[in-house]
Design a protein around this nucleic acid. Structure first.
Lengths: 205, 205
DNA sequence: GGCACATGTCTACACCTGTAGACACACTTA
DNA sequence: TAAGTGTGTCTACAGGTGTAGACATGTGCC
């Protein structure tokens, strides 16, 4: 671990205009930001509270003071990571193509983008983390996505769409299997588009 | 952790016919079996060498004596788990349907089957484990599957098939999201079959 | 100016981790 | 029977974990 980097918002930093240096809200937010980044990179079990604290420029104990425990911090971090994130792109007929291209772009080997799928995959081993994420999916991504896919079996088709995306993130970004990482982006996007198209279609085959 | 259960092949056990009680090969195999089970259930980071040793009915130090380190034991366990495992079912025109039904059956909430996908998903957080698994996929599943999907872009289509399956295992077995776990098996299998059918087709859309 | 509270740090604990080295036992061979 | 070696265990260590409690310090209010 070396989450040192530059603390996203050092808790004790005069700031540009000499603001107050002890700001509970800002510190809490800095911890939360550092937590999202660290959990996404190394997973729930792979990160220690000391790492997160260092990333936020504070001490480990502040995490317990503000969030109660590592587990509760993780729950908030998951909420932050899953809530606003767009898991699909485009609408209507353009949805499959846009979503496929966005997925290929974000999982490209040179792209260092973090995202909710990485947080999900890297934390899946822990049962507590899994339960927290299951509830978060039901609350955020799953619900939004279901609304975007009207018709019969919308919930199933929505979660299959999440499954396919998670699988591609796993193979391409986490494991880095050869065929998917070396594939031509256009070809990969076309294949994924035809898969998403099947899931947008409400009629049963 | 409580991998206690019943040691699959107690290293020091007279056996039915009073065989030799100190059998290096049997002990090694017992450790390997216990390792596959434990890593599949809790992932690379979630298992300690003491847990595995207890599952095999031996002491932790024997693991280092026979395998060198936890990491090398994991590499062998991955090889065991990935090698013979059939990741697709059926051949030719029956492949999509058979594979879909097998996937739905094996990821059913009541099914307690372990498998290579669970090992993969639960160990993905560790970089060392990820590298070991990437190489194993290239050596086993990816290669076999590619041979079964002749035509253009076979490698990409094969790994997309693995991606989709991994994603379904993640959502359905590891996380247990509501829509996929509560879905009617037949409907889910039909949807998956049409997805697999797209991947069996070699022509680009 | 001085008090009181919010904010942050320090020390410590009990537990777990992978692994190294020395030791004890069982079985085979001479 | 006695030596020798393969097989397994015991003790220990250095480091890391999450978290509890006591302590210090900056900041705003009267």
């Amino acid at each position: 671990m070396s989450e040192a980097a530059t603390p996203s918002t050092p808790a004790t930093d005069p700031g540009p205009e000499g603001k107050r240096r002890r700001d509970a809200g800002a510190t809490r937010q800095a911890i939360l930001d550092a937590a999202v980044a660290a959990f996404t990179r190394h997973g729930y079990d792979g990160v220690g509270v000391r790492d997160i604290a260092q990333g936020a420029g504070v001490t480990a104990m502040l995490i317990n003071r503000y969030f109660g425990s590592k587990e509760r911090l993780f729950a908030e971090a998951v909420d932050v990571a899953f809530a606003p994130r767009t898991v699909i792109a485009g609408t209507g007929a353009a949805l499959p193509g846009e979503t496929a291209r966005a997925l290929v772009r974000r999982t490209a080997p040179e792209a260092e983008e973090l995202g909710p799928f990485l947080l999900m995959l890297r934390s899946a081993a822990s049962p507590q983390a899994a339960q927290i994420m299951r509830e978060a999916i039901g609350r955020h991504a799953g619900r939004h996505l279901t609304e975007e896919l009207p018709g019969a079996g919308a919930g199933v088709r929505a979660e299959l769409m999440l499954s396919l995306q998670a699988g591609v993130w796993l193979m391409r970004s986490v494991l880095g299997t050869t065929a998917l990482t070396e594939a031509a982006p256009e070809e990969l996007a076309e294949r994924l588009e035809s898969l998403f198209a099947v899931l947008v279609d409400a009629t049963r085959s």
